[in-house]
Each structure stands twice: as structure tokens, then as C-alpha cells.
Design a protein around this nucleic acid. Structure first.
Lengths: 205, 205
DNA sequence: GTCTATACCGCGATAGAC
DNA sequence: GTCTATCGCGGTATAGAC
């Protein structure tokens, strides 16, 4: 297994370099030569490790998604309170942005383009799966009385999904705010809003 | 001026077609031949109207941004109450998504790539300008007591900016929700949160 | 596992006829 | 204002030497 690890390590090195470039410049805008240059080898040599540029991004995304959705499933299956589950799902997402910023960025920026190919059909499936997770959490939250009764679940789901993942555009691991701090601020806004007036019972004397 | 209108109209037709393709597939991923095909002419003919593909996206973005920022300036300069100004700025943004979805999508998806060229330096300037508008509105809101004192202005600005514009990914003009309905839901969440518990005074017995 | 060399294609753009 | 024809570049990918 030592030999296998070494082999896998080289592969993963190259994938990590590719992921950084894909995230920074976009899949289509990153050339095979860019990846080779950044790896210190020539473009032809990359094809000893991978079939194609598409194969590289495929492996990057599918590996990440597998890990991420296993984590979501664990939250959904847990027996915590409704509100706690929602908080954990949100924190999980910011943690993913912290630990896999390139993968998240690639998914955010290029899933639309890649999803058009049959090979990347699983991206749409994962999207549907994510929707199910959140709709379940929100529906449960409303039923349990933890969330407002008048919420449009579908709209709220889209807001949460987009507003969480879009943070990858500016969040930098090791920057001024930790991912837990960002999650705290986000949850405060999401759950209680930015206004000083109380919700439901509008206004005070 | 009738002749001029006809001339401008042809130009604008082509730009509108290009904008749709840029928004759908991305700037880099849209070929000059795609645009020509969709316009019913050959690729060479496009160069009678425009210098280059870059010129096209330049004209699309700069025209839109000029209009948008004039609207923001009007809100900022108005003498409405702090909270009302914030609401108007948000509604303005959803209105822009409704009326210029292609332009917003192009900006969201390709500003990063395009901004690297000197020619598109104004994109970064506009970004800074937008930040100034929002930081001013939020600072004013906190000072006036309309917003929580403990808000991280910078973080809140980024949340609002991203969470508003990202709606272009799923909002469809003429779809199930009008842009005003979406803005209503968004403002409700932003200002008051989705939770049923009251803010500030955390917890109950 | 990497390099040399190269095939092949689609891209943005141009020149001149109509 | 559009078409025909074409150039030159840079992209992905391949074959075989080292």
C-alpha cells in the first residue's frame, strides 16, 4: 500500500494543481499547457496520468461531492432538533468552502457548462439531492414551529443554497474571519435578520 | 434621427443576441460563429458592425452599468429614511435582474475573467462604487438605529451583494414569482430572518 | 514518468467580391 | 450589409524515444 500511496499522491498533486487553476480561471479558460506548466512538466506528460482535461475535472468534482453529501446525509439522519439540524447543515457548508474552496468554486462556476455533457449528469442529480435535503429540513422546521409559517419553502431553499455557496467568491481560508465566524454571522442574519425591529410582532413603542 | 434609430436598432439586435449567448454559455465559451449563426449571418459579417468579440461584451456591460449606477446614485442621494433606502436599493437590484438578466449574468460569471484586461478596468471601479453605496447605506442604518448595532458592516455588505445578484441564476422573468415578490421575500428574510424566535433576546425558558 | 515532435481542429479576425 | 475564402494561432490530444 506504500507504493499505491505514492502513486495516488502524484495523481493527487496534479489534480490539486489543476483544481487551483480551474477555480481561478475557469475550466474552459485553463489550458492543459497551463496545468503542465504549473506542475513543472510538459503538456504531453499529463496524458500519462489522465485521459483528458475533462477526466481531471470529473475526478475533482465527483470525489468532493461524494464526501460532501455523505456529511449532509448524516445531518439529515440525526435526531437533533429541527433548528439545530439547519444550523449544522449551514456550518457544514461553510466548512466545505474552507476545506475545499477550489472544488466549490469549480462547481459554482462551471457546473452549468459541464452539466450539458452526459458524462456530468451526476451534477444535476446532486443538485436535486441537495434540494431534497434542504426542503426536508425547512419543512420539518416549519412543522416544528421553529420557522415562520409563512415561508415560501422553495424560495427559501434557493436563497440559502445560493447565499451559502456564493461565499466562496470572497472567503479565503486563513483570512480575517474563520469559517465558523462567517457561519455565525450568516446564521444570525438568516435566522433573526439584520433589523432591530422584532419579527412577527412588528414595531415597539 | 429615423435613420440613426434604424442603424442603432440593428446594432442592438446583434448585441441582444450576443448577450443571450454570453449569459447562457459564458463569454469564452461563446464563439463568434455562434453569434453569427443565431443572427442568421456569417461570422465575417459581424465584423462590419463590431471590432471584436471583446468590443461586443464591452458595449453590453458598460451600457448596462451606466444605467444601473445612475439608479443607485438616485437612491443614495434621496432623503428617504434609512430603512426605506435599503429596501429601495434591494428592490432596484431585483428589478435589474428582471429587466436585464443577460447583462447581470454576464457580469456575475465573466467579470472575473474580463477584469484582468486593462480595457475592462471599469468593472473593478464599478465594484468599488457599489461597495461604497452599500457601506454608506448600512452605516447610516446602524447610526439611525434601524439596524442592529453588532453588525459587521463589511460582511453584511458582501452577503447582501452576493445574495441579491446570485438570484440571476434561477430567476426567470415572467416565471412563477414576479421580481417584486422575490424582493419582498428577500427583504423579509434579510430584515427579520426566517426564525420564529425574537432576535436580540436569545432563547426562552 | 517525462520529453520531443507533431497531427488536427476550431478559434478570432481580415480582405475583397457582390 | 453580407458572403466567400482564407490566414495564423493556440487548443486538445497522440506516438514513440528516452
Amino acid at each position: 500500500m506504500a507504493a499505491e500511496t505514492a502513486k495516488a499522491t502524484r495523481r493527487e498533486q496534479l489534480l490539486a494543481i489543476a483544481a487551483g487553476l480551474f477555480a481561478e480561471k475557469g475550466f474552459k479558460n485553463t489550458t492543459v499547457r497551463d496545468i503542465a506548466d504549473a506542475s513543472g512538466i510538459l503538456s504531453g506528460s499529463l496524458y500519462h496520468h489522465f485521459d483528458s482535461k475533462e477526466s481531471m475535472v470529473d475526478e475533482i468534482l465527483s470525489t468532493f461531492q461524494e464526501e460532501l453529501f455523505a456529511a449532509y446525509d448524516a445531518v439529515l439522519a440525526s435526531d437533533a432538533e429541527s433548528r439545530a439540524k439547519i444550523e449544522r447543515a449551514v456550518r457544514l457548508s461553510f466548512e466545505a468552502i474552507d476545506q475545499h474552496p477550489h472544488e466549490v468554486a469549480i462547481f459554482q462556476n462551471d457546473a452549468g457548462y459541464l452539466g450539458a455533457f452526459e458524462r456530468f449528469g451526476y451534477l444535476a442529480e446532486r443538485n436535486a439531492q441537495s434540494r431534497e435535503v434542504w426542503v426536508a429540513l425547512l419543512t420539518e422546521g416549519v412543522a416544528a414551529g421553529a420557522l415562520r409559517q409563512d415561508l415560501d419553502i422553495e424560495l427559501t431553499y434557493r436563497f440559502i443554497r445560493d447565499t451559502v455557496w456564493v461565499a466562496v467568491k470572497w472567503y479565503r481560508p486563513g483570512g480575517r474571519h474563520s469559517h465558523t465566524e462567517v457561519a455565525d454571522q450568516y446564521l444570525t442574519i438568516l435566522l433573526d435578520g439584520i433589523s432591530t425591529t422584532t419579527p412577527q410582532l412588528h414595531e415597539r413603542p
